[in-house]
Simulated scan of single mutants.
Amino acid sequence: MAQQHLDPTDPTAGAVTGDALAGYLRAQATEFLRALRLHRETGGGASNGSEESVDAARALRRSARRVSASLHTFRPLLDADWSEAIRPELAWLSGTLAMEHAYAARLERLLLALHRLSGATVLPGQAGGSDAGGVADVAGVASGSRSADATAGVAAGGRTGGGAAVPQKAAAPHTGPAAATATPERGNLTVGAAKAGALLERQLTLARTRAHSTALQALGSSRFHAVADTIAVLASEVPLTSAAATADLRPLAAAAEERLTDAVAALPLVTAGHPYNAEALIHGLSPDPAPHPQDAPWHQVRLLLRLHRYAREVLLGDDGPVDVRLLAAGQSLNRHRDASEAAAAAAQAARTPRIAPATAYALGVLHADQRHEVEAARFAFQQSWQMKTVGGPQRP
């Protein structure tokens, strides 16, 4: 039986003062400086950084996120001018360093999904050939549904001037005997999967290269050096207010938890219980390239969950228990973000002018598959959030 632990936001528990916040910020600043030194020592400025430099960049992002989150949650206890000046800079740095890894992971996710859906013996991106010849205004449609190990795509007509695939009607999931129709559809998918993979690889590899160059420029800029200097000062001196020494951190941490709870309560968890959300598919391949409107509240919950987790770290310290409920919820929301962004990348590729109908079809089925993953992640979050909060194993 899991051991019960005291809730750090419990008003009956002992007070946690500004000293805990100062210690946490100093520790994170020290980790930032250590990661920066490792990044420089391992050739982080090279065109293809080593595994150590990649780990160092990840550690930089991790420390920057935690410092920024703590400045946000506990800002009444910190010098206001200093806090408001450094928070946007930390957000800029973390976001800039994250993009290269995000593009690489997105490409890997999409190629593996194409491989699974088409039943190909090699990854689609490994096949050569360009997607020329096609039609200027591609008619493409795709909706897919998963039955056991396969996803069946259903085509419907539609044209746009820019070559985007626009579904006319979302298909219902195939289950039972109806799944037999997946065989000819899979044949159609296999035809376009190789070229779809090659198109995605070209687009996302180019985006990754640009992100790498942007990160290198950022790390060599005066803007970054100003951030590093500020963090170096933070490692030894935390600009707390005069009231922070005796102030209790728990009400501010409780406010962060309340914001998270309110945001979760506003989520359409009933819709998340359904295995197939046709509205999500219809929007995803529309000509409108704007972010998916259904996803924004979930992304916001992911950010609020992170703020809550980091506030708990401040209160509990390095030896605090891991909340397995928050851990599982966070993993589900990360999965949701990855699938959502992968679906958007597939939809964007489907809007490429003059691609062959088979390629557009494969990209549409891929988009539908990733929207299925989005729905599955929402359902997983719902299940984990309803778990009872119990203490997990101690931090290593």
Rank of each mutant, 00 (worst) to 15 (best):
A263G: 08
V54N: 07
E185M: 14
T205P: 01
L111I: 06
A362E: 10
A265L: 12
V166E: 14
L333E: 05
A156C: 12
R337D: 14
R37D: 14
M99D: 09
A343Y: 00
P321K: 11
V324W: 13
L252Y: 09
G128H: 10
L304H: 10
L281I: 07
L333G: 05
D338W: 02
P88M: 08
A56D: 04
L200F: 04
L33S: 03
G95W: 03
R116V: 08
L77G: 08
L326S: 02
R106A: 11
Q300C: 08
R202I: 08
A170M: 09
A2F: 13
A35M: 04
Q203W: 00
G320W: 11
G176P: 02
Q4H: 11
A22D: 01
R378M: 07
H174I: 13
P287F: 05
L97C: 07
G197Q: 07
R306Y: 13
A56N: 01
P291H: 02
Q294E: 15
E257I: 01
D262I: 14
Q168V: 15
L117C: 02
G317T: 04
D149H: 12
E373T: 00
F32P: 00
P353F: 12
D137C: 01
S222E: 14
T151V: 14
L110P: 00
L77C: 00
H212F: 05
L366H: 04
R26Q: 15
E258D: 13
V16R: 13
L315I: 14
G364V: 09
Q394N: 04
G134R: 06
A64I: 05
V301R: 03
P8F: 06
A380T: 08
G44C: 03
L117P: 06
E313L: 10
A311R: 02
H274Y: 10
D131Q: 08
R312E: 04
L77F: 08
G128W: 04
R325E: 04
T175D: 04
E51Y: 11
L6C: 10
L90C: 09
G18I: 05
H72R: 09
E279A: 13
L315E: 08
A344Y: 04
G14K: 11
A377G: 08
S53E: 14
L267S: 09
G44M: 06
N277F: 10
E257L: 00
T246P: 00
A343D: 05
A215C: 01
T73H: 06
L269V: 04
T359D: 05
E31C: 01
